[in-house]
Structure formats: C-alpha cells, structure tokens
Design a binder for these strands. Structure first.
Lengths: 353, 353
DNA sequence: CTGTTAGCGCCTTCAC
DNA sequence: GTGAAGGCGCTAACAG
C-alpha cells in the first residue's frame, strides 16, 4: 500500500508483522505522536479537527496502544492479581466472575494466582508484585504475605493497593469486603434452635481461618441467644472440603449420643456429611437435620436440598473489584463493605423430632 | 545504607520507591548491564566470576527485572490467555489449576477470560491479543474468533500461538488436547445396555457444541454395538447446566413411556435430573438409572453417587499448557493429544429391572 | 567473554 | 493547541 516506516519489503516472508504504532497513526493523521497520545488520553486538549483526523486514522489502521510501552512509561500495568486459596473450590468461581467482569469493564485484566494450599506458592504473589506486573491485588486468602519485610535480599517494593475479599485480614489497613459471618452463623444456629433442636453439632473450618473464628463465635452467639449450653464435644473439625464433611459424618455415625442437627460451615462439607449419613442408613432430615453455608449451586439440587446461608458471591466480587479500581485511580473508597446474607430454607432441616 | 543510584534523598517522603534496576546491579557487581542481563538469560556465556558477582549483587539488592521493559524490548509478555465459556462451571476449575501450575513453573502468568455465554465478550480475546498483551492462548470454548479478518479497521495482528483444550476446533490448524468423547460416550452406552437397559435416554449438550456432536455419535455407536435401535424421542436437549438437567427430569417425569436409563452428558445435568426424579417420587437407580459425564467432585457424593466418565482434568490442563509453552519456545509439539478416560461405576446405575 | 550502543513504543515535560 | 525530544528499563547487535 504505502511505504511509510516499513522500509523492508520482506513483509511477505516475515512471520512477525509489526503492529501499528503511534507513529503510523500520527503520520496518517498528519500530526505529531504527542497529539495522538493526547487525543486518546485527554481529548479535550486537542482541537476538534485534529481529534477527528486522529480518530479516523486509528479506525483505519486498527491501532491499539502497546501495553508494554505504556506500562514502561507510565508505571502502570492495568493488571490486577487475584489470590485465592483454591481455584477448584466452587465457592470462588462466581466471585471470580464478578471480579472479572468489573475489571474488564474498567480496562483491567485479571491474573489469577491459585495458592493451592501450599504456602510455597506464595512466591506467586511476591513475584508478581515485586516485578511490578500488577497494579493491585484482591486477596481471598486471608493472608498478607509477601510483605517484603524490607531487609537483606528483599526487593524494596512499592506497596501496591490491596483489597481483602471474604476473609478479612486482621490488623491490615486495607479495605475489606465481606459478609457478616458471625451474624449469619448466629442466625442459622438460632433457626435450628427455633425448630426445637437442643443438641446442635458444629462442623468447623480450619482453626486458623478468620471465617472460621467468626462463624464459630456466631455459633456460640446463637446458642446463647437460644438459651442452649455450648458443648465442645459437639464441635467437629473440618476444612470446608467435601472430604472433611465425609469424615465428619463418619465420626457422627459412630457416636452413641448423636446431635439432632448439624451446622456445617460450608455447603461442600454439608453435602459430604449428608452423603455419609445416608449411606449409614440415617435419614436426613428425619433423623438428623443438616445445614450448610454459602449456597453454592449444588445446594439446591442436593438430596435432600440444603438449608443454608446464601452469600451474594457475584456481588462480592464486583464490590471488591470496584473498590480496588477506585483505589488505583485515586478515588476515595470505603474501608469496609458488608453485603447481606440470606437464610435459605430447604429440605435438609426439619423440626427436632 | 549505600548511595549508589539513589541520588535523591527524599526517599522518606516519596511514596513511590523506585525498584532496583539492572543498572544498580551492574554498578554493584562492577560489570555492564549487558553482562547482568546475560548472567540471567544465558549464564553459560558469562565467566563464573562475573556470574558470581552478579548473583551476589542481585541477592543483595533483591533485583527483579522489570517485565514491562523486558516485554517492550523482547516482544514477549510471558503471559498466556485462557479463554473459557463459563468460569463458574466446576468442570473447569481443576483444569485451570493444571494450566496454572504448569505455566507458573515455566515463568508464565495466566490471564483468564470468561466468555460468560455472551458472544460480545469475545472482545476480550480480541483486545488482549490485538494489544499484544499475551504470547499465546488456550481456548476452552471451541471457537476461533478474533480471527482478525485482515480488513478495514482490523489491526493487522501477529497470529499468536493457540491451543485448543477439550473442545476441538474443527478446521483450525492448532494443537488439540482432548479426550476421546465419542469412544467414552459409546462405552457408557454399552455399559448401560450390558445391564439390560433397552430404553436409554440421552440428555444432550448444546447442539452447536463439538463435544455434544462427538458424544452423540458415541451414544449412537454404543446403541448400535449393543444392537439397540436409536429412538429420537429419547434424545432430550440440555446445555450441561444443572438447570437443564432439572428441566430434562421434569420432561421425563411427565412421560407415559419412560426410559429405564438416562445418560446425561454432564454430571451437573445428571445431578439436576436425579433431583427432579427423586422429588417426583421415582427411585434412582431402582426405577431409573442415571449416568453422568466428567466425574466432578460432587459426583462421588451425590445421592445416589453417580456412575460417570472420569476425565483427567488436571492432566488435561497440564498437557495444554505444556504444548503451548513448547510452541512459544519454538519446540516441536504434537498436534493432537488424547488423554484416557475411565468408566467410574457407582450407585446411580443398576441392572434394568 | 565483555562492554558500548541503539532502540522497543509510548507519554510527558518543555518550548513555542 | 501543538511539536520536538528525552527517557522509562531492558536486551539484541555489534565490536572488541
């Protein structure tokens, strides 16, 4: 076509076609590269005529700014890191979607780092932030690692904006987006108590987990509000996985004195637990009521369908992304956002009988 | 501490601390920046002494190369885009983990693009590849959009390496990593037939989907191998979601002549369908056997537990990432990789009675 | 084996 | 309102 710039004529053979640069656009629009840049970033500072010519040239060439160059120059990557403990946990998927759609609309990309339960993988976080590959991060794992404790061998890094989602990070002065776990757990406990259950077991999350601590407090709150005593023997350890629910169920089956209701702090555990109970010939909810937490997709189609606490997962993701973007763009943000949960009553819980 | 480079002393007040650059390392190690660069990229071409000094300087300063600068210069981003139709589908989570761990080990980051069923979101793909934000992509959605049909208004883009995972892309000359859907579906069908089932219903995926087409062929293969006639009335439309399984179940319940077995081409559909059947008072597997496909986590704890086809999801992800990395680094790759599936026999299927 | 040099493409002063 | 010019940090090319 035209021969500006592309001096070499070996274009046919070179597999690497060079993308349109700002120079090409500038030449075509007969302005300087600075004007092209301004027409994009601050259109109001460019004359309407010049702007029109630039826009036309961009449309004609399909010009897209090179993000690496832009990054290098502006020290921004337009990338956000999302750190989560377990990608294969269904609880996170809808949250991720909420995050992703919000980020995308704002022009940000999402990089996912799955910690996979192995602390070694925290290197991910460190590597990405240290190298300045992301502008900010959303933390779903309740930790604040990679803190770059400013010492020998530590890259003296710019602290990037962070947002904690779901799992509050105690002591960290960063925005928190979450639900009121304690209140929700209390509510479920009281719901069970209100149906006449006096022996209510509690299947916990990992002890170190902040969610667990909140929900456990809520469980005790609920017992107290209902005038029921707290019995440590009815606290069964779990870790939110299906397998731990299965294990908890096995322990329950083996007992002499069984609870009449079990409050599992995740739906996966509740489903695993119900499975074990049913396999052992116990009926749910006739013999034992089972409640969950989260309201994942499978809760509604479990057999029996699961009474649980609904979390607005998509909205949680959206809120976290919105706050982070505000932070990145220097807008004021709220330090804490709490979204509402809902008690969803289905078939796995019945009056104590 | 020491004052090389950092001439300004306003460090206390400036919130943006500049990260260590290659120059700082070079100065400290008393070599040129080129040597530092080489010590990292091609250590064998640097004298052991120089290398040692460089490494020491890096350790001392915590130097991490600036990826934007590296990208700009080398035209590589060390980022891979993963395009998938639905992030909240549990089927993908373990695949993603397989991809992520493999990419990370090779120094690549993973950007996720969730199409969310909306074709408009294909802009994602276009935007990322057009801007050169990624070196390659793994496609889990069976499409090859963003083809940049080289016309007016289209950025004349470098075609980046692509790999198709799970859903083969017909006509595209890119590596395919998948299972043998047809053979697996045939095997399940024959398994059902071998238990005496003569009226076997089939709950399909979306008609346009390549997986669906393969599995449907496999279903017919299986019927034929078992000497059973194919009856279009026993093909029930679905789209792999729980909801479509529920809907399929409702249709089934309403029928006069019911099948004795139902083969659902996804576990979610099978679980949704079982739920509906059970709610309607039918027993699984006594009245109707139900089989799934995928072997997601919940298959084992469904009630009854689900007979299904196991897919090596993590391995699929790993294989795709490995192939893409090979491609990116110019190594020869296999054009097609097929991983083995397994028939998992559980409680949702029983002999025809 | 090593250093020097020249950009990668963009944005952003600084002049006009 | 616009253009010229410098430099973000790195690596590839070329000398030595």
């Amino acid at each position: 076509m035209d021969d500006l710039g592309q001096s070499d004529s070996a274009e046919r053979e070179d597999p690497r076609i060079r993308a349109t640069r700002i120079q090409d656009v500038a030449k075509l629009a007969d302005v300087s590269t600075a004007t092209v840049s301004r027409a994009l970033a601050t259109p109001e500072r460019v004359s309407p005529e010049a702007r029109a010519r630039v826009l036309e040239a961009i449309a004609k060439t399909g010009y897209v700014p090179n993000p690496a160059a832009r990054s290098l120059r502006s020290q921004k990557t337009f990338m956000v890191l999302v750190v989560l403990p377990d990608l294969s946990n269904t609880f996170f998927s809808k949250i991720l979607r909420g995050i992703e759609e919000t980020l995308f609309d704002a022009g940000y990309g999402m990089i996912i780092s799955d910690l996979d339960g192995s602390p070694a993988k925290e290197a991910h976080f460190a590597a990405f932030t240290a190298a300045g590959r992301v502008d900010g991060a959303i933390l779903l794992n309740g930790h604040l690692f990679g803190q770059s404790r400013e010492g020998e061998g530590q890259p003296a890094r710019i602290a990037i904006p962070l947002v904690a989602l779901c799992e509050a990070i105690p002591g960290a002065d960063i925005p928190q987006i979450e639900i009121d776990n304690r209140a929700a757990a209390s509510r479920m406990t009281q719901h069970l108590a209100s149906l006449g259950h006096r022996r209510i077991a509690y299947v916990s999350g990992p002890a170190s987990n902040i969610l667990e601590r909140e929900r456990f407090l809520g469980f005790k709150d609920g017992l107290e509000a209902a005038g029921l005593p707290f019995d440590p023997a009815f606290v069964i350890p779990g870790d939110y996985t299906i397998e731990s629910g299965v294990a908890a169920g096995q322990g329950l089956v083996a007992r002499k004195t069984r609870p009449t209701a079990v409050f599992c702090t995740s739906d996966e555990m509740a489903i695993g637990l119900m499975r074990t109970l049913l396999s052992a010939g116990l009926r749910v909810p006739e013999d034992i009521s089972v409640a969950g937490f989260d309201d994942i997709e499978f809760a509604a189609v479990a057999e029996p369908s699961l009474t649980t606490i609904h979390q607005p997962r998509r909205e949680l993701g959206q809120a976290a992304a919105t706050v982070l973007i505000d932070l990145l763009q220097g807008r004021p943000t709220r330090k804490q956002i709490r979204l509402e949960t809902e008690l969803v009553i289905r078939d796995s819980v019945a009056p104590a009988g």
